[in-house]
Computed example of a mutant assay.
Amino acid sequence: MESLALPPPRRHIARMNPENIVYRTAVWIIPLVIAIVFHEVAHGWMAKWLGDPTAQERRRLSFNPIRHVDPIGTVILPLGLAIAGAPVFGWAKPVPVIAQRLRNPRWGMVAVALAGPGMNLALATLTAIAIGAALALSGGTPPTGMAAFVFQNLVNFLQVNVFLAIFNLLPMPPFDGGHVVEGLLPRPLAAQWAKIGQFGFLLLLFVLVVLPMIVPSADVVGRIVGPPAQAVLNVFIALAGAIA
């Protein structure tokens, strides 16, 4: 996904050099972990509100990243993408939700699924406002020095939240969009659809990694997620610009 196209700060102390691999990794991993944690906690909050306290009982309604970290999705994959300079994305351990404990299992699961992307879009809105305010306070130019690190984290936090929201709305298991489809399907078809979710990780690996290697034109991230994510991102960029 494209960046906000803001000019780089004119000066940095050595360890804050944006070309430094540690800097480049930090300004992506920090926003990603925060966005993922809020995403998962939002699922748990919605489930609790609708009658299922499973996430709370298992201590997953916590903003402690350690409780949500998936070694591959939260650490290895994002780290590799950040180092490679590719669009950074990832996932965390799913918050446990037991549909049968929800007051309305079918529509409750739809609401729980949409809570995660909804949280990411809410965070993106707040971040766009913060970016606009920061630019307004600095006279329309990005800050320098240590403040530039914080500002870059805000910029990347905006991008990550928009990307996660759109990415998770893909209508296939194990994404949130897949749960929405399951809730909308007639019950017999929904039961069959749910079985696909048992192979969610393998399906995810095939669609995102293997398929693009075999058929380069079948780039789900670049061709399906990228355009709508960029369109939504442009709205938030405009909001930040209006405030600035």
Rank of each mutant, 00 (worst) to 15 (best):
F167K: 14
N168F: 15
N168W: 14
N168M: 12
L169Y: 07
L169F: 11
L170D: 00
L170M: 13
M172N: 02
M172G: 05
M172Q: 11
P173K: 08
P173D: 06
P173E: 08
P173Q: 15
P173R: 11
P174I: 10
P174N: 14
F175N: 09
F175I: 04
D176M: 12
G177Q: 07
G177K: 07
G177M: 05
G177Y: 09
G177L: 02
G177F: 07
G178K: 12
G178Q: 12
G178W: 13
H179K: 15
H179R: 15
V180D: 03
V181N: 02
V181D: 02
E182Q: 15
E182K: 10
G183L: 06
G183I: 03
G183R: 04
L184D: 12
L184A: 15
L184K: 08
L184Y: 11
L184C: 11
L185K: 04
L185S: 12
L185Q: 11
L185N: 02
R187W: 13
R187P: 14
R187N: 06
R187M: 08
R187A: 09
R187D: 09
P188I: 10
P188W: 08
P188M: 12
L189S: 08
A190V: 06
A191C: 01
Q192Y: 12
Q192S: 14
Q192F: 02
Q192C: 06
W193S: 02
A194R: 02
A194Q: 04
A194M: 06
K195Y: 08
K195M: 05
I196N: 00
I196E: 00
I196T: 01
G197V: 03
G197W: 00
Q198D: 13
Q198H: 06
